[in-house]
Amino acid sequence: MKYKNFPMVPKVVFGRGCFSQLDEILMPKRKSDEAPFIFLVDDVFENDNWILSRIPLLFNDQIIFIPTDEEPKTDQVDALVEKIRQDATQMPSGIIGIGGGTVMDIAKAVSIMLTSQGSSADYQGWDLVKNEAIYHVGIPTISGTGAEVSRTTVLTGPDKKLGINSDYTPFDQVVLDPELTKGVPKDQWFYTGMDCYIHCIESLNGTYLNAFSQSYGEKAQELCDEVFYNGNLTTEEAQDKLMMASWHGGMSIAYSQVGVAHAMSYGLSYLLGTKHGIGNCIVFDHLEGFYPEGVAQFKKMKEKHGIVLPTGLCANLTDADFDTMINVSMGMDPLWENACGKNWKDTITPEKLRSLYEKM
């Protein structure tokens, strides 16, 4: 048997206030005065001087604000790559992503595409990237997606929603500063945190489970339970622990896979533009048949925090709409195999998926 030899993030700094160390982290990586660092920043911070004033701009470094109302798209990545190539006289020294999962994924994709030809849509899949990405740094400002540690960058393309999964995708450096998560709205905090929780449930109940993924998944689930259900934590303790849950949850799926909720949420996202975190929650709420204990605990956490999920998303869809969502979902073969085994197509039928979507 040949085992996967996955890359991991080689450098990570964790601690409250460590964002202030970004200058000393980046300086040795600066190639020249003419090779800028490009900071891709969530546009929620466009008028936030507390963060912007601490970004160590030098020479012709550039901040590009990234809209995050929608999931990241391949044409968005392609446009950013074209802009950076036109503006810079030299290849940038690096790409720095500051924001949530959307910005993390865009930063990883841009760093890959700056050394690759064609469209980012050409690389949606597993191990299609052949050239090493330029230096790229991830700085999450919300916890849960695991995008800061994963080897994928999930993009919606013209034909599918699928990640660029490659050995060149993971960040070269991650800066984990829990202080940066202080302004996250409650609903978004819950949805993104539940993305992490669902990572754990899908990994720990999957056929790909092994001691590596189990060790990370169990710790991430323990931290999620503490933050969202049974812990008596201060705000700072909750921020610290959820940031670590996100890291561990991302590591858990690095050597296994996610499952049904993610596969089906990709269908919602592709057709309706439903954002990843809330999409996972909407789907997971109906998956008692796959993850009975995990869904039961999820419902308790939802009730404790007064979260009311949207309903009726699929109420007015056409047959063609349902077929589109089903086709996108059923195209996620590794996710279904992890959830249901190699013969998953014997039990996961278009009719079964439609009956689940109709509940949402």
Rank of each mutant, 00 (worst) to 15 (best):
N5W: 06
R16W: 00
S20R: 10
D33L: 15
E46G: 08
N47D: 10
N47V: 14
N49R: 13
S53E: 05
L58R: 15
F59D: 04
N60M: 05
D61C: 05
I66W: 03
T68D: 10
D78S: 03
V81I: 08
K83P: 15
Q86C: 14
T115G: 07
S120G: 02
G138I: 14
T145N: 00
G146N: 03
A147M: 08
V149M: 04
V154Q: 09
T156N: 13
P158E: 07
D159W: 05
T169Q: 02
D172K: 02
V174P: 13
L176A: 04
L180H: 01
V184I: 02
D187F: 00
I201R: 11
S203Y: 12
T207I: 14
Q214P: 06
Y216P: 14
G217F: 02
E218H: 04
K219E: 13
G231I: 02
G231S: 07
M243N: 06
M244V: 03
H248Y: 12
G250S: 09
V258D: 05
V258A: 10
G259I: 00
S269E: 01
G273Q: 01
K275H: 11
I278N: 00
N280W: 01
A296F: 06
K299F: 11
K304Y: 02
L313Y: 09
C314N: 10
A315Q: 07
L317G: 04
D321K: 01
S329H: 02
P334D: 04
W344L: 12
D346G: 11
T347P: 03
R354D: 01
R354G: 02
S355N: 13
E358Q: 07
